Amino acid sequence: MIVVDRERLARLPLLTLAAPAIREAYIAVTDGRANLPPVGYLPLSGRNADCHIKYGYIEGDPIFVVKIAAGFYDNPAKGLPSSSGMMVAVSAETGDVIAVLDDRGLLTDLRTGIGGAIATMALWRGGARRIGIVGTGTQARVQIRALAALSDRPLHFTVWGRSPERAQAVLTDLADLDLSIAATTDLETLCRQSDAIVTTTPSKEPLIRSQWIAPGTHITAMGADAPGKQELDIALVARADRLVVDLADQCLDHGELSAAAGAGLIARDCCIALGAVLSGASEGRLSDGDITIADLTGIATQDIAIARTVLDELGLLGRSQGTTP
């Protein structure tokens, strides 16, 4: 068994390298190839923390993956990252553990960022340039890096944070990129002026009001990945013209759509699978005036995709066939 540490993983250009596999991972959910058992969820409410266990298999793959991802949301105040975890890649032929990817949350952060960028680019309107980023944590940074790496157009980013210092820190951390980027503490103005908005906070109460969102705006909601989390006003969710999900069962149970569904404002048949949009089986945005929302709760096929990309890039996939890499 091989253990690959975070430092080695961080040297791989995964934002671009893994994007095609993650795009295909969404499609696998809709065409019957994905086996996705229910997510394991462990809340540590007294510590403002939680842990997810996600696992799954894509038919025909040489591996399946078990992922542990922990979020400790008070860590940034201690000078520590908020996310940690690991992925275990197991041979789908023999059951042998091929590798432990000791990424300490890096691969989850990257696959989430890539997935968010893929959804945003699939649903924003033609000519969208102004991107609002809600939040100042790790995922805010990764969403910007992913969009900058994968977009086919120049973008202007505005980052919102409750404190100017935290918003400015995001800009400082992204100084290695050639970006048009600004910081703000005015969330309403950010929402009114953005063509697309990406929300990345662990908020437990709505931050974004329906009246702030103009026709034609796209929102990719990333933060609500556990019961009780919510970033969008339920009136906004109910008002949206198109609701796109990575996995309907998860999104209606504990994603951004769950509060609106619980209030009886939306039904399951309102949900359009992102994989179906990407494959062309369903339409995403129907017009430039549509308000579109993508609710992404994170699915194991993303973890499989990025783990497979890593193993392939490092020459380790041959181990699943019983050969020496």
Rank of each mutant, 00 (worst) to 15 (best):
V4E: 06
L9D: 12
T16P: 00
L17W: 12
A19V: 05
A21M: 12
I22M: 09
R23M: 03
E24P: 07
A25M: 13
D31G: 09
G32T: 12
R33H: 10
A34T: 10
P37M: 11
P37D: 03
Y41K: 03
Y41V: 00
L42E: 06
L42T: 12
L44S: 12
N48K: 13
C51S: 07
I53N: 01
I53Q: 06
Y55L: 13
G56Y: 09
Y57R: 11
G60H: 15
D61V: 12
F64V: 12
V66M: 14
K67D: 12
I68M: 09
P76N: 05
L80D: 14
L80C: 10
P81L: 06
P81V: 02
S83A: 06
M87L: 15
V88W: 11
A89D: 04
A89W: 08
V90S: 08
A92M: 07
G105Y: 01
L107D: 05
L107P: 08
L107N: 11
R111W: 12
M121W: 00
A122D: 01
L123N: 01
G126K: 14
R129T: 13
R129H: 13
R130G: 03
T136M: 10
G137Y: 02
R141L: 01
V142L: 00
R145H: 09
A146I: 08
L155C: 11
F157D: 02
T158Y: 06
V159A: 04
V159W: 13
S163P: 04
A167F: 15
V170Y: 07
V170K: 08
T172E: 15
T172F: 07
I181W: 11
T185I: 10
L187S: 05
T189Q: 06
I197D: 07
V198Y: 07
S203K: 04
E205L: 08
L207D: 08
A214K: 13
G216V: 05
H218W: 03
T220H: 05
M222D: 09
A226F: 10
A235F: 04
V237T: 09
V237C: 04
D241I: 01
D249N: 10
Q250G: 08
C251I: 00
L252S: 05
L252T: 04
H254W: 15
H254M: 12
E256T: 06
L257M: 15
S258L: 11
A263L: 13
L265H: 15
L265P: 14
I266D: 00
A267V: 12
A276K: 07
S282F: 00
S282A: 14
S287Y: 06
I291L: 12
I291R: 04
D295N: 13
L296F: 08
G298L: 06
T301W: 14
Q302C: 09
A307C: 15
R308L: 15
V310H: 13
L311M: 14
L316G: 07
P325R: 06
